[in-house]
Design a protein around this nucleic acid. Sequence first.
DNA 1: CTGACGAATTGATCTGAGTCAGTTTTCGGA
DNA 2: TCCGAAAACTGACTCAGATCAATTCGTCAG
Lengths: 244, 244
Amino acid sequence: MSIAGSPLARKLGAFVALTEKELAVLEGFHQCRQTFDPGVDLVRQGQLGQSAFILADGWVCSYKLLPGGTRQIVDFQVPGDFLGLRSVLFRTSDHNAETMTTVEVSEVSSNDLIDAFATTPRLAMAVLWAASRDEAMVVEHLVDIGRRNALERTAHFLLELGARLKLVGLGTKEGYACPLSQSMLADALGLTGVHINRVLRQLREKGLLTFRTGQVIFDDFERLVKLADFDTAYLDQDGPLLRQ
Amino acid sequence: MSIAGSPLARKLGAFVALTEKELAVLEGFHQCRQTFDPGVDLVRQGQLGQSAFILADGWVCSYKLLPGGTRQIVDFQVPGDFLGLRSVLFRTSDHNAETMTTVEVSEVSSNDLIDAFATTPRLAMAVLWAASRDEAMVVEHLVDIGRRNALERTAHFLLELGARLKLVGLGTKEGYACPLSQSMLADALGLTGVHINRVLRQLREKGLLTFRTGQVIFDDFERLVKLADFDTAYLDQDGPLLRQ
DNA sequence: CTGACGAATTGATCTGAGTCAGTTTTCGGA
DNA sequence: TCCGAAAACTGACTCAGATCAATTCGTCAG
């Protein structure tokens, strides 16, 4: 696959039409391809001078640890996503990132990234632009946790994850492959594992959604969207705002 | 005050050392100064082709409405903050923004902003970079709501707001002026107005913090930080990553 | 000074989600 | 094919925070 056709290039191209030169710099990011096992920390809270990563395959989750031993999962990264960007921009990381599956990434050193941003600022813009879209997802997540009950919250979150995977060709209206365990889902939604289990049973018994090891199946997409008050439009974007 | 000394220029300068030309473009943003009364919507959910605003004075809050009539406040904007950026980047807004006080803003039209981004990409970078820092705050907010109980959550949130205001010279370790009503605080923290009232009483009775109309007073900063598990370091940043 | 309206405050009661303490299922490795 | 560990599942009980229903306070217009 040419770099121009990679998930990342496709994503960035949605914001800024990239020139040959910019694509070449992007290509340079992919020098250092690596594979990691599940359960490895790629980014650690408080650590200095870390690299960023571009996720080519597999899933990663970003989370914060709390003193009580609990954690809050803030976001999941799927293929095509950048990760550890903030830990480069601010020189120190404010969160952890852990591989959930076997993962393939391109590691981009802090210096390379900053150099690239300095020489091809339009590319920098595209990357930060994409980060800004990811923020929209974190905001939706915030609303889930703040103002939706466990049932709506779970439904909404799994729909959103599906919408996001559809963008990179990894999901459909029928469902998607999902390596989350129930307790990870709990940590993402601010619930306990026990309660998530009961909520998933309810969703199953109501014929709305089946969450099984490695697979999310939308049994009744329409009713699910209605229950969760899910807005299907907010991820759309019709063309780059900045032309070459 | 020269443009180079404005809160926004100061903030952006922390990321990217701005050139004369870039400062001039920033200056251009301030052509269209306006004043709004409290309770006015600056940005409306779902509206197309909106302007962005630079907040010069007063407070604004960004929130999402839910079908049940409840709302979740996602963030507050204080002087020096950009707002409505995402509604320009994505052509349509995913949230509302309402003035909380009398407010002074500079309106920057969608087209002017995109043109400026195209001609001075380093400035664009600085703006998006600042947006990325704001996201760190939304993440902290997410953790508050997901994994802290009402007391810790309220304490943590008010400490964070204080830290942020200190950056723009509007707060100290003693406290800060704060135009939030109890029910706004409730909408931000995912609680009810009734419960926030009880929590604020507890904080007052424990001699930790006093929240009164228009004023937050830290009665015992140290103990408050400890209760809330507040990290005082995460807002620090020592110099621009990109030089002129 | 007075009425009125919104914000703050309080008490009583209810309930969604947490906690505790298991049992059962799944699945990879010997 | 059997074993052990982790994940999924379940029931009984508790509690933090919601809900409901007043009352009080503050402030601004008349």
